[in-house]
Design a protein around this nucleic acid. Structure first.
Lengths: 229, 229
DNA sequence: TTATTGTTTATTGTATACAATTTTTAACGG
DNA sequence: CCGTTAAAAATTGTATACAATAAACAATAA
């Protein structure tokens, strides 16, 4: 998304507010509020919301307004199933053009992740930084822009929900192990395994999510965020 | 896309005009023109175009207007690569929940396709009808709405270009053969083969497209539609 | 004759204003 | 005291109006 026009900037701001939780799932996003915050008029806000509506990051109830979606279990399943298939494709495409230098570059990222995780208190922000870099780099190598855009969309749709539950130590340990196994598979030329591991890595997040529903659910954290399908 | 508001109807109309070639690749879509044709004012047209922009069906040049994209070879590759992976996923998901009744239902569609193709002059519209029904039914069975929406997007993006080239007899013959092989693989429980065939079926369209570039290109039909990457 | 610059025109980008609908609240009746 | 209805407030949906920018064309000078 370009950063040029007022509409595009509004888009980015709203998107950030949703992903970071300033607008919470289920909450209404009133045009007036946004236009006041951004000190612009309503039309560009409307257009920005229309774009986000088209990508699925917000939903519109006719004559009611736009809302941050309340994802059902089925929604979460849809998102992660799709994301897994997409990331598998990224791996597949990347493997066809990857150079040894790029493989080494990515292993370095994995090593950074590993170093962070063995410490007592994991710096989640740093971990996330390297983790993101790993997948972004792979996307770049795969070289399919539409794939990249759509995967980012899906990621944003799920983020307000996975934000907390995905950053617990045991999940981080499994995450880093997946990336180690993936890079080993890549190095040994086992493409099929690498793709399969990548798919599992994404689906792992879904499992964590579903496992934690029972616990987090009752704590009232996600109870207002995820509804029964 | 719902058919409720003026914006949604504008969206559908513009989309149809692009897919059917009333707005040709490279052509500018002027807000004034659309609003006149639809007898509505400009704002809803703008919002509709913003939605189509978000889905990638039109591109916006800042301060210039919106245009039907001129796809490069790389664009076409991106679209079909993604579409193939998505359709493979559809097959995979559908196979997990498909009933014998549904399998029979789909084989009936394939038989209808077969009957049409053996005739001298193929009724392309009828063929397309059954072909669409086949894939739409599979999508329904797979049960992933986001997957469905996105696949439809990709289909629309490529349609203005594949419209002509994909409806030649030899391609139709290969198409119907693919569907026969797919349904046979499904019936025999060979899931992996079914998925693989589905993927190949989609990529086949890309091959046809690339093959025909040389020919159709010089006829000036697509010369203004597809640019060098 | 051609290139460059200035003016005009067309189109998008933004803001303001109004209409329609829905929700909420208050009042009235049971 | 609760339910129902009506009126008011708030919010979205649509239209009109104006500003800014870029493209096209014409005019002038080299």
């Amino acid at each position: 998304m370009k950063v040029d026009s007022i509409v595009d900037r509004a888009c980015q701001h709203i998107q950030e507010w949703i992903v970071t939780g300033r607008f919470k799932p289920g909450e209404q996003i009133k045009e007036e509020i946004v236009s006041q915050r951004l000190e612009i008029s309503r039309p560009p806000v409307r257009e920005a919301l229309k774009m986000l509506e088209a990508t699925g990051l917000v939903v519109r109830k006719p004559r009611r307004g736009v809302f941050v979606p309340l994802l059902t279990k089925k929604d979460v399943w849809e998102i992660y199933t799709l994301k897994a298939a997409l990331y598998e494709l990224v791996m597949e495409l990347a493997l066809e053009v990857m150079t040894d230098g790029q493989i080494h570059e990515m292993e370095t990222l994995v090593e950074k992740m590993e170093k962070l995780v063995i410490e007592d208190t994991v710096d989640i922000l740093k971990y996330q930084k390297h983790h993101k870099a790993f997948h972004r780099r792979l996307m770049e190598i795969a070289g399919n822009n539409r794939l990249n855009t759509f995967a980012a969309n899906l990621h944003n749709q799920a983020t307000p929900f996975s934000y907390k539950s995905l950053h617990q130590k045991d999940h981080l340990l499994r995450s880093v192990q997946y990336h180690r196994e993936i890079i080993e598979a890549v190095k040994s030329g086992n493409r099929h395994l690498a793709c399969s591991l990548m798919k599992q890595h994404v689906m792992d997040a879904l499992l964590v999510f579903q496992d934690e529903q029972g616990a987090v659910w009752d704590e009232g954290l996600l109870s207002s965020m995820v509804m029964e399908g």
